[in-house]
């Protein structure tokens, strides 16, 4: 077994097991804990797949940002210590069965597909950039609207457009979300306890 396969097995197992643990945990903070493990090992899988920048972004934005926000939300909405809103066992069993069935369908269809292998040409042009794991500069260039990896592979006179427009749209979207979330979450009247 090669080193890469060994590391892959370890992190894939950690990802899958903690994802299952998220489903079966009852308190929200434990769910958050298992979610951290799941997302952290996913980022390790990204590092293994030569996507250094995506892995680091996953750690910084997802684990360090989004999940802290979620745990913060848990603390703000808990009416007592270790808030537990239990799902009835029947629902868990039903959910588990449907999930297993769904997983089976997904696997069956995954194995049925013959994925297109990279051609020699595209390996030479595109994947070479990815292979080293140092995708920082190609990624930055593609966000600026230039795609050196694609342009040298098509060897025509057509320049491949990069991701400048989506990048700008996402930036504006983030700003809108920032304002919108601040507006939605501001303190308002509190409902009186019903019953």
């Amino acid at each position: 077994m090669s080193g890469e396969s060994f590391l892959f097995t370890v992190f894939a197992a950690a990802t899958c097991l903690s994802a299952v643990a998220v489903v079966f945990s009852q308190t929200v903070v434990r769910m958050a804990f298992w979610l951290i493990i799941a997302l952290g090992s996913t980022s390790a899988l990204f590092f293994l797949a030569n996507a250094d920048f995506v892995g680091a972004a996953q750690l910084l934005i997802y684990v360090g940002g989004t999940l802290v926000l979620l745990v913060f939300g848990v603390m703000l909405t808990a009416s007592g210590p270790y808030l537990k809103i239990a799902t009835s066992p029947g629902e868990i069993v039903l959910g588990g069965l449907v999930g297993l069935l769904f997983l089976f369908v997904v696997f069956a269809s995954l194995n049925g597909v013959e994925w297109r292998k990279p051609t020699a040409h595209s390996i030479e042009a595109g994947s070479q950039v990815v292979a080293a794991g140092n995708t920082l500069r190609p990624l930055g260039l593609s966000f600026l609207g230039s795609r050196p990896d694609k342009d040298s592979s098509t060897d025509g006179n057509v320049l491949t457009p990069g991701y400048l427009l989506p990048f700008e749209i996402v930036s504006v979207h983030l700003l809108v979300v920032l304002i919108g979330a601040a507006y939605l979450a501001r303190a308002k009247r509190r409902a009186v306890q019903p019953n």
């Binding site: 951290i36 952290g40 250094d52 920048f53 892995g55 680091a56 972004a57 750690l59 910084l60 684990v63 360090g64 940002g65 999940l67 802290v68 745990v71 794991g133 140092n134 995708t135 920082l136 500069r137």
Partner: peptide, 18 residues
């Protein structure tokens, strides 16, 4: 020796809060 070393470092340090 990662190309985005600073980014990785800041992202790992941000996990401590958890």
């Amino acid at each position: 020796a990662a190309d985005c070393g600073l980014f990785i470092m800041l992202s790992i340090l941000s996990l401590e809060v958890f």
